[in-house]
C-alpha cells in the first residue's frame, strides 16, 4: 500500500517537473517567435543569463543584503515578541478571549494600508519596513504558539509544579520545548510574511532594497534587470519555504504527529 502510494507520489513529481519544463519551454518559444514582444518579457534563458551576470557583477549585493537583513530582523522581532506574547496570553485567559476576534480577522486587514502612517511616524528609512514585516508575521507566531501551548499534556505541568519550578523555569524548560513543533509552524509562516512585508513595503515606497530595484527597473523599462530580480526573489522565497517545510516534517515525525 505504502509502496503504491510512493509510486504515485514519484509519478506525480515527474509530471510536475514535466509540466514546469513545458511551461518554461512554451514561454521561451513564444518569446523567441515574437508572440510576446521584448518589451513585455525576455525569453526565460535570457533572464537566467542576466541573473547570473547581475549576481556575479555584484552591483545588487547592497540591495540583496538590505532586503534579506531587514527580513531577518523583522522575523527575529516577530518570533521574540510573538512567543512572549503567546506565553503571557496563555496565563491571562480573559485577555486572550478579548483578543481572539482580533487574531481571527487580522490577516483580512490590508496591513499595507498602515505603511503610509508608519512612514509619517518613522521617516522613510528601514524602520517602517521592518515594522510592517514584523507586524505581518507576529500574529502567525502568536496563534501557532498558543495552539502549541494548549496541547501541552497536563501531566507535564503537574510535574513542573511538583518539582517546584518557578513560572519562568516552567515556561522555558517545559512549555516552550513541548510546543516547539507548533512554534516552528508559526516560524515558517513568519518567514514568508516578513519577506512579503519587507518586499511589499520596498515596492510601494522606499529608497533601496530588492523590491525598490524591481520597481525602479519597471519604471525605466529595464527588463534586463527587472526579470532576473523577480526570478531571484521567487527562487529565494520558494527555497526558504521548502527548507522550512522539510524541517517541520522531520520534527513532526519525530514526535509522531504527522
Amino acid at each position: 500500500m505504502t509502496q503504491a502510494g510512493g509510486g504515485i507520489l514519484k509519478r506525480a513529481a515527474l509530471w510536475r517537473i514535466a509540466l514546469l519544463v513545458v511551461a518554461v519551454g512554451g514561454l521561451e518559444l513564444l518569446c523567441l517567435t515574437g508572440r510576446i514582444d521584448r518589451l513585455t518579457m525576455q525569453p526565460p534563458h535570457r533572464i537566467l543569463v542576466d541573473m547570473v551576470a547581475l549576481l556575479a557583477g555584484g552591483q545588487l549585493n547592497t540591495a540583496i543584503a538590505k532586503t534579506l537583513g531587514n527580513a531577518a530582523l523583522a522575523f527575529v522581532i516577530a518570533m521574540v515578541v510573538g512567543v512572549t506574547v503567546a506565553v503571557v496570553l496563555h496565563y491571562f485567559r480573559s485577555l486572550r478571549h478579548t483578543l481572539d476576534p482580533l487574531f481571527a480577522t487580522y490577516y483580512a486587514i490590508p496591513m499595507f494600508a498602515f505603511y503610509p502612517l508608519l512612514i509619517v511616524l518613522f521617516g522613510l528609512g528601514d524602520t517602517p519596513q521592518i515594522f510592517i514585516g514584523a507586524m505581518l508575521a507576529v500574529v502567525a507566531v502568536i496563534v501557532n504558539t498558543l495552539n502549541g501551548l494548549d496541547r501541552i499534556p497536563r501531566v507535564l505541568l503537574k510535574t513542573a509544579r511538583v518539582n517546584q519550578l518557578s513560572a519562568w523555569e516552567t515556561a522555558t524548560q517545559v512549555m516552550l520545548p513541548c510546543a516547539t513543533p507548533y512554534i516552528l509552524t508559526g516560524a515558517k509562516l513568519a518567514v514568508a510574511y516578513s519577506l512579503i512585508g519587507i518586499i511589499g513595503a520596498e515596492f510601494i515606497m522606499s529608497t533601496g532594497g530588492m523590491g525598490y530595484e524591481i520597481s525602479f527597473a519597471y519604471t525605466n523599462f529595464d527588463n534586463a534587470k527587472m526579470y532576473p530580480l523577480i526570478l531571484l526573489i521567487l527562487a529565494v522565497s520558494i527555497a526558504i519555504n521548502t527548507l522550512l517545510a522539510r524541517w517541520e516534517k522531520v520534527l513532526m515525525a519525530r514526535r509522531g504527529l504527522s
Partner: peptide, 11 residues
C-alpha cells in the same frame, strides 16, 4: 501561495 506576489505585479 507563499511567494511575495507583489513582485509579479510589474509583469
Amino acid at each position: 501561495y507563499s511567494i511575495p506576489k507583489i513582485t509579479l505585479y510589474p509583469i
